[in-house]
Design a protein around this nucleic acid. Structure first.
Lengths: 251, 251
DNA sequence: TTGATAGTGTGATATTTCTCACAAAAGTTC
DNA sequence: GAACTTTTGTGAGAAATATCACACTATCAA
């Protein structure tokens, strides 16, 4: 049985592609233009780094296209992916406008075009336009809530729950409705998935196998298609989508 | 061997008690006064709730005294403590100034006096005073970074690492220098500790026993005294405190 | 001071997750 | 399309963590 139509409509990015995405959905047209006006464009090839863990937080990055992952590395070489961002997302990591250091690296995983914003320029803009500052704060608050709900899911329901939560979020952020269900339009290896949920590649592999035999997911051309979203929801205690605000349930 | 003096000085709340604490350390005297001016005082007894998961996010709470924990409950009755806040902390959970719902409950664990702030009043204040808005954003950014680093620690180094990280953070937030080391001035049961790190009471109990026999910690009057902070740091890959900004390593 | 209640300590066992080892499959390059 | 390289799949065993059961200790209120 496929996912019901209401879910498809609300849960996938297809309908959103014609609409506003990322931070622009949270700020006015005018303020969005202001924000755009202080960026300069930079192209970043897959595999390159926008910044490294420990660099100064001098700039913010507005993602125009491509995919970028935010990764914390440990000395022992185990990486943890904090977030995966795309078109419309703003990469910002700073406590204020004074000097501080990045806590993770930004690795481009699909060729990207980003708008680079000088912290100082943003500060001037925010100070001058009170309404922009408020909108920006709203967005910051939302990002914080996403982080909280994400990590809560990763901690509370074991690795299968963590994987299920991640797959649901990927549906909401990268999903495209298709006849079989929701296709996650993002190619990740099992190792990359493991780094998101804090598990080993082998565990992820076994869990995915089980989801396949259950009929919850299927894989086509290396992309995961979620056939039974409700199965995933059950594994991570995701309440009915009326209660769980979609804007928070994302990567 | 006790903790070295430099560490003691920087890592405990003793020196900070005469200084600014919580959000007031991040905003100017003038803006702090503005913030105080829109609060009304409320007393909340231990055991009471400031708000419940699912309530509308109508107010913010500035903690003047007492201790409050922010808890997410699941249907199966397993709770997870997201944060423990104290004097100077601001409890805020909102994506912007429109209607939204709390994602966790705020439970008073030591009699508290809080300043209640109407979301609408704060909005006016922030819009009117651009410098306040910037300071407020700095603080929001910092809170987000604390959340990220906390959950990262909870996920990456197993339960012993999660416990070690939590104990270090408790030293920084509630620690008082004493002759044996750092006394954590907060009484938590093993169950409460378990709810912070996402483990069972029994696991916490066994891990604490081991820390005791190692000589890393000791318990006096129901409070934990950390005797060898470096032992804890080793367990959660905490880099030297010159690299890890203290403002981020807190509860 | 005595129950009642809440919290701690600990063994035995089950379950989850990781580790290691290696084979099979898929993707890339020349 | 042969030779690499990367990724996936899987078994066996080890390690970490949870579960259950119950005794013990501390705290508190009458």
């Amino acid at each position: 049985m496929a996912v019901n139509q209401l879910e498809l409509a609300s849960r996938t990015k297809t309908i959103n592609q014609t609409e506003k995405f990322g931070i622009s959905a949270y700020i006015s047209e005018e303020n969005n233009n202001r924000l755009q006006s202080i960026m300069y464009t930079k192209l970043a090839a897959a595999g390159s780094y926008l910044f490294w863990d420990g660099d100064e937080t001098e700039y913010l990055y507005y993602v125009r296209s491509g995919i970028i992952k935010l990764v914390k590395s440990t000395e022992e070489g185990r990486d943890m992916t904090m977030s995966i961002v795309q078109k419309g997302d703003l990469i910002m990591e700073m406590n204020g406008f004074h000097v501080s250091l990045h806590n993770f690296s930004a690795i481009v995983i699909e060729d990207a075009e980003v708008g680079v914003i000088q912290k100082k320029d943003l500060e001037i803009l925010l100070q001058r336009h009170g309404d922009f500052a408020l909108e920006f704060m709203s967005w910051m608050g939302l990002m914080h809530r996403i982080t909280q709900s994400k990590f809560r899911d990763l901690l509370m329901y074991g690795k299968p729950g963590a994987l299920a939560s991640t797959l649901i979020r990927m549906c909401n952020s990268f999903g495209i409705a298709c006849e079989d269900g929701i296709r996650i339009d993002l190619k990740l290896t099992n190792t990359e998935l493991a780094e998101i949920i804090g598990a080993t590649r082998e565990s992820v592999n076994r869990m995915l196998s089980e989801l396949k035999t259950e009929g919850t997911i299927t894989v086509k051309n290396g992309q995961i298609i979620v056939q039974r979203l409700s199965n995933l929801k059950g594994k991570c205690n995701c309440p009915s989508f009326l209660v769980c605000p979609l804007e928070i349930c994302r990567m």
